[in-house]
Simulated assay, not measured.
Amino acid sequence: MSKKANPTYSAPALEKGLDIIELLSKEEIGLTQSEIARALDRSVGEIFRMLMVLQSRGYVAQDPVSDRYALTTYIFEIAHRIPTVGRLTAAAEPLMRDVTRATNQSVHLAILADESILVVGQTNPPGNNILSVRLGAKIDLWQASSGRVILAFHSADEVTELLKKVPLPADYNNEKIRTELADIHSNGFEVRDSFVVKGVVNIAVPIIDHSGRAAAALTMPHIERFGEKITFEQCRVELIKTAATLSKNLGGKPPGIS
């Protein structure tokens, strides 16, 4: 662990907490409390207090069988959340305005946060009749088209971890959700009936970043109006084009979709 030789300011408690985080970041199976104390040349009492705070804040978790402490994914989320949101919303806002005007449909931008889907952007068309999702809304991971298309472009290990933490809907099992995620990955988008509003069909497309993972998703909760001149297929194509442009702006390669 790198440390400054002569720090201008000292915060011993903070340093102990950071030492634990840095130590655990190198351990695949975690460490027990006594192992951490020995590695950091600290007393067990000091380490216990730090671990309790880190655990209560969600940075570490203790395995109930082995008593080993390991880092959670929380630090990963923090490291990517704010910069991603800032970049995403800045890049997405004008594109989202364009696609809502072109399709006369609402569009929202969502990311994965705290094992849920968080809506970080929302644009509405100029018409009188709209369907929108509240900005800042948190939605159940497995019952959101945004969540499904994001996880379709995450690793199998990440999906496994979330399956352990977030219960599936009553009519789902692990095999079924994995099959559907594989289909989404193959297609590059998802079209399905809304989980919450009857008669609404969701079109959801991933936003791919430079690493090849889905950083976010654009979702259009499509509503059918009498006398609508813009077809559903036109809406699908326009949303896919918008997501592809946004992915490229983030340095990502859009999935090969038609």
Rank of each mutant, 00 (worst) to 15 (best):
P12R: 09
A13M: 01
A13K: 15
A13T: 03
L14D: 01
E15M: 04
K16F: 00
K16H: 04
L18Y: 04
L18T: 01
D19V: 02
D19E: 14
I20M: 03
I20E: 01
I21G: 00
I21W: 00
I21V: 14
E22H: 13
L23T: 13
L23S: 04
L24V: 13
S25R: 15
K26I: 03
K26N: 10
K26M: 11
E28K: 14
E28Q: 11
E28S: 13
G30Q: 05
L31N: 05
T32P: 04
Q33C: 07
Q33D: 12
S34Y: 13
E35L: 02
E35H: 01
A37K: 03
A37Y: 00
A37L: 02
R38S: 12
A39P: 07
L40T: 13
D41F: 03
D41G: 01
R42M: 14
R42G: 06
S43F: 03
G45M: 11
G45K: 13
E46K: 08
E46H: 11
E46M: 12
I47F: 07
I47T: 12
F48C: 06
F48N: 07
R49N: 15
R49A: 08
R49S: 10
M50T: 05
M50A: 13
L51H: 06
L51G: 01
M52P: 00
M52S: 10
V53N: 05
Q55T: 14
G58P: 00
G58D: 00
Y59G: 06
V60R: 07
A61M: 11
Q62D: 10
D63V: 03
P64T: 09
S66L: 09
S66H: 13
D67T: 05
D67W: 08
R68G: 02
Y69N: 01
L71G: 03
T73E: 07
I75E: 05
E77Y: 04
E77T: 09
I78R: 12
I78F: 03
A79Q: 13
A79S: 09
H80C: 00
H80G: 10
H80P: 00
I82C: 02
P83D: 04
P83C: 02
T84D: 08
T84E: 08
V85C: 15
R87E: 14
L88K: 01
L88M: 06
T89Y: 07
T89W: 04
A90W: 11
A90F: 12
A91S: 10
A92D: 09
A92G: 05
A92W: 13
A92N: 08
A92Y: 08
E93M: 14
E93V: 11
E93N: 12
L95K: 15
L95R: 15
L95H: 11
M96T: 07
M96C: 13
M96V: 11
R97K: 14
R97T: 07
D98W: 04
D98A: 09
T100C: 14
R101T: 12
A102V: 09
T103P: 12
T103L: 14
T103F: 11
S106V: 01
S106N: 07
S106D: 03
S106L: 01
V107D: 03
H108K: 04
H108F: 11
L109D: 05
L109W: 09
I111N: 02
I111S: 03
I111T: 10
L112T: 08
D114R: 15
D114F: 09
E115L: 11
S116T: 09
G121I: 01
Q122F: 02
N124M: 07
N124Y: 04
N124T: 14
N124L: 04
P125T: 06
P125A: 12
N128R: 14
N128W: 08
